[in-house]
């Protein structure tokens, strides 16, 4: 199983290459993990400790006080907000993935009038920052009477030009025309072919798109800020920001909130990681 034992000697990397690779990887790991470490350390500190003590060393233990402050500042809504973020991101991720893959499939495999124009429009959408669309979207959703509902966040988040773009790429690379022709000859309808055959082939790609949309929705800040009023509907990003927008925030409490709120994301990534790996290599070793 272990690949190194089976690699012929001529293909093994030289010791120098191996050393350099390790050094670069360790440096990258440190670079990426250092902020997380800083976050863990800082979330245990009080405001004066944050200023007066070394940022990379633990000072007084203020964990419980920070947690109490976090609960008080969020009026006990903190975990509800984390749940909201999970809900919005999951629903938007699932629906958005389905939309992206089917749109990508249609663009890649069907001939239709104006296809080039549609592709161009989607690519154009890729360049459009979502922040620019938020205010028009708000007025639009207000007309529909959907502001201050979960749909005001979920529906716009389902639409991902990048997801469609990725979906098209994955279909191009991973779904051979021959297979579709064969299934048509065997009498499978287009809908059945899509749901039973194409989606199965695209599973790794879908995980990739799902994670992209999930993270984008989780991080989207301006949309819920504009759309939502009720404290019960806020996602966690918005709630934590509400603690920061005043002059003298309880930094330790906010940082603890930030730390606790990324835990679901970390778990999700660990679970879906192996799918993502195969997703990124899809089509890379086509004979």
């Amino acid at each position: 199983m272990a690949p190194t034992t089976q690699t012929p000697p001529s293909l093994r990397p030289s010791p120098a290459t191996l050393a350099i690779t390790r050094i670069v990887l360790i440096a990258a790991a440190v670079l990426f993990l250092a902020p997380v470490y800083w976050l863990i350390v800082s979330s245990t500190k009080s405001n004066p400790d944050l200023i007066s003590s070394n940022g990379l060393l633990f000072a007084g233990n203020n964990i419980v006080e920070n947690y109490t402050a976090l609960m008080s500042w969020t009026q006990g809504n903190f975990w509800r907000w984390v749940g909201n973020s999970m809900l919005y991101s999951t629903v938007a991720g699932v629906l958005g993935t389905l939309v992206s893959v089917s749109a990508g499939y249609a663009l890649a495999k069907f001939r239709m009038p104006g296809k080039a124009g549609i592709q161009l429009a989607i690519l154009g959408g890729l360049l459009m920052p979502i922040a620019l669309l938020t205010v028009p979207l708000y007025i639009f959703f207000n007309g529909l009477g959907l502001t201050n509902t979960i749909w005001a966040v979920i529906i716009p988040s389902c639409v991902s030009p990048f997801g469609v773009f990725l979906g098209r790429m994955f279909v191009d690379a991973g779904v051979p025309d021959e297979l579709l022709e064969a299934s048509r000859l065997d009498g499978s309808g287009e809908v059945r072919t899509f749901f039973t055959l194409v989606l199965r082939l695209l599973a790794p790609a879908m995980v990739t798109i799902f994670l992209f949309i999930f993270v984008a929705t989780w991080n989207n800040f301006l949309l819920p800020l504009m759309m939502l009023n009720s404290a019960e509907l806020k996602p966690v990003t918005l709630g934590l920001y509400g603690m920061m927008s005043y002059f003298s925030p309880q930094y330790g409490a906010v940082l603890q909130g930030a730390l606790l709120s990324v835990i679901p994301l970390v778990v999700l990534f660990f679970v879906l990681q192996r799918y993502w790996q195969s997703g990124l290599t899809a089509g890379a070793v086509k004979g």
Partner: peptide, 13 residues
């Protein structure tokens, strides 16, 4: 309702 953003963002809203 508490607005969570900055003052400038509240003006936009």
């Amino acid at each position: 309702t508490k607005f969570d953003g900055k003052a400038a963002e509240m003006l936009t809203k």
